[in-house]
Amino acid sequence: MVESMPGVKQRPLMRAVVYVPLILTAIYFLLPLIVMLLTSVKTMDEIRAGNLLSLPATLTFEPWAKAWDKMGGTFTNSFMIVVPAVAISTAVGAFNGFVLTKWRFRGSELLFGMLLVGCFIPFQVILLPMARTLGLLGLAGTTGGLILVHVIYGLAFTTLFFRNFYVAVPDELVKAARIDGAGFFTIFWRIILPLSGPIIVVSVIWQFTQIWNDFLFGVVYSSGETQPITVALNNLVNTSTGVKEYNVDMAAALLAALPTLVVYILAGKHFVAGLTAGAVKG
């Protein structure tokens, strides 16, 4: 971007005007992460004595081991919730998008409109009704229940993603396939889904981040053993007994943030590409 701005390359002053704020902003955003990282590998003695930004005098990974000890189980819990919830909400979103664009029926636009409202319903509003529903279904406090909540909540978004992507896929592709003899599911599976790579990436990243980072649903609908990592982190940090172990807290927080960070670093580029993907040409 910067390079395409005329004049920026040639004039050092212009360059400084652009880069100095950029670098300052980057530092501003990175600073908490750096402090966390540094703190998580320091001993408690050093933390009490020292400066937030100083490098550790003695490098220790004991806080990380301790954090894993306390949170490892919930780390797995979170995966048990996130993986199926992301997979199901993405799959159903793709299916919805296909039906809403390529297999329209009377009222399909209205249905889509109502589904969109789902994107704007605040979490708090559904807490009680959902608790009751889960209770009736016998899913209260189970991993299955949490998956269900996340799938339902995510559907509005995943449907929106896929619908907007499929609107740009030419209808003639579906017509050609129908004349070739393909039915509803064959068209979805063999023609539409293979085109959906970019938007699947978007949906997966979005849902993964949302569900992994969720705290409210986790704290309300999970019980002790099904607790996701965000809830466990909160419990760890908020304990009032004993000495506050800042280094363990920081390691635990980083642990909780790691998967979303990894997903973003690995696939972030595709996220932007997927959102701006142009029409598929036949």
Binding site: P170, E172, L173, K175, A177, L195, G282
Partner: peptide
């Protein structure tokens, strides 16, 4: 059989 204006070849 039908031939379309946009060709409608299956891209994948």
């Amino acid at each position: 059989a039908m031939v379309f204006q946009s060709y409608a070849l299956y891209p994948n």
